[in-house]
Computed example of a mutant assay.
Amino acid sequence: MTTLRGSCDPGFDHVRAALQRRLDDGDEIGASLVVDLDGHRAVDLRGGFRDAGRTSPWDEHTITNVWSCTKMVTALAALVLVDRGELDLDAPVARYWPEFAAHGKGGVEVRHLLSHTSGVSGLEPPATLEDFYDVRGAAARMAAQEPWWTPGTASGYHVLTYGHLIGELVVRTTGRSLTRFVADEIAEPLGADFRIGVPEADRPRVAPIVPPSGSDVADGADPGPPSVDGPAAKTFAAGAAPTDANTPQWQRAELGAVNGHGNAGSLARILSVVARGGEVDGIRLLGPRTVERILEPQADGTDLVLGIPLRWGIGFGLPQRRTLPWLPDGRIAFWGGWGGSMVVLDLDRRMTISYVMNRMSPGIIGSERSAEYVAAVYDAVTS
């Protein structure tokens, strides 16, 4: 039996049992799972191994690349600035970033960037992953290109561009990089073991990403057909393979869409700010009005990049039963990372569910594992 460490309230025994079984069966290599109920850690579990050879235990200090769960922290950074009055969700992006108005983007609003409806879901080809490592240069290219659909009319998942677009707004309004702002204003005040990218000193405790079988496309979607000129194909043209996350170039970069490093505990600590009404242990990052704006629907339909039905609020996904039948309706905000990591924020229950692992599963959003864990949590809180 694989050792599973941490704590679990008796009412959540089925959650522990599900994670234990997945570890014992080998579906999981290493993972962490947290359920925060208004500041009480009802579940705080970790177990398995950091490496595919199963030689180095996953412990409370283990971190890993959390893929698109990073986007939620990046969105939170923008919302902190909104709450302070430094950004206006309904203002044109060009108010803060004049160059962005080029080629008909003068009407794109800040909320369009946050809700994946800006029309700038990728970098105009030809583009490579290395182009994205040049953060300010890539952002300048995004500002200069035409939108790939009419902004505000539909979502098209901003796979890699999300962090560059929001990050440039952070730079323009604060003079600090997204990495620095997240560290100074979010992670450090909350005591959360999370960062965008990962410093060299922390790399020995990083659990390398273990790829899923049969998928090497960024964020897990298949870009084409139908159209080699459509948003999906162009968004994925730069490409990113799972093992890119294990390279020094990736770990040094500021990819606010995809290369946050942390674990279930640190993501729960940060993002429970939303579930708990904007404040955690006396540290207030958001006011109630800003929290409520997260739940305002911005898009509801087939995403032009991922090709599946999605509902977007401001910065977070909203429940969509056709895509995620295991996620209940209600005042819930969520998103996940490629391979299955997941954070669910239930505002009515003031509950945060956070799951992070190193062995990826196929799929676009969530996985069989994350679905099982989230369903088990909801069984526990509703029984």
Rank of each mutant, 00 (worst) to 15 (best):
S266C: 14
G214L: 14
A201E: 15
P242R: 05
D300A: 15
D202E: 15
P212T: 07
K234H: 11
G262K: 05
P319Q: 05
A264M: 11
G224H: 09
D300K: 01
P248C: 07
V291S: 02
V305T: 12
P226G: 11
P225Q: 04
S272A: 14
G262H: 03
V198C: 15
G262V: 03
G301P: 00
R284K: 09
A238T: 01
Q320M: 12
L255H: 01
R284D: 05
R195I: 03
R205E: 06
F316R: 02
E292P: 00
S215Q: 14
L267I: 11
Q251F: 02
A257W: 03
P208N: 08
I196Y: 02
I308D: 04
P309H: 09
G224S: 13
F194N: 01
D229K: 00
D216H: 13
T247K: 03
A245R: 02
T302G: 03
R276W: 08
I196K: 03
L310V: 14
G287Y: 08
P297I: 13
P225A: 14
W250I: 01
P225W: 05
E279W: 06
A233I: 03
E188Y: 00
A275I: 13
E292H: 12
E279R: 14
Q320K: 09
P242E: 10
A240Y: 03
V210R: 01
A233D: 06
E279H: 06
R203I: 11
I283Y: 00
I196N: 06
V217M: 10
A240V: 06
A232N: 04
S215A: 14
L190F: 07
E279Y: 04
A257H: 03
Q249S: 14
R195W: 02
L190G: 06
I209Y: 01
R289G: 04
G301M: 08
S213T: 13
R252Y: 04
V274F: 12
L190N: 04
L271H: 08
A253K: 01
L267S: 03
E200L: 13
Q298T: 11
G224P: 00
P288G: 07
L304C: 01
A192S: 02
A268S: 15
D303A: 06
E254P: 00
R203Y: 07
P189D: 08
W250M: 15
A233M: 14
V273A: 12
I209A: 13
K234L: 15
A221F: 15
G214A: 15
D244P: 00
Q320V: 09
L306Q: 06
S266M: 11
G301K: 03
A253I: 05
P223E: 09
I209C: 12
A299E: 04
W250N: 04
S213P: 07
G220K: 08
A253M: 08
A207D: 10
P319L: 13
G315F: 07
G301T: 06
F194T: 07
R276L: 04
G197W: 08
G313S: 10
E254L: 03
L318M: 08
R311T: 14
E296I: 13
R289S: 13
D193G: 03
T235A: 12
W312G: 01
G220M: 11
P248V: 11
P231G: 07
D216N: 12
A253W: 07
E188H: 11
D202L: 15
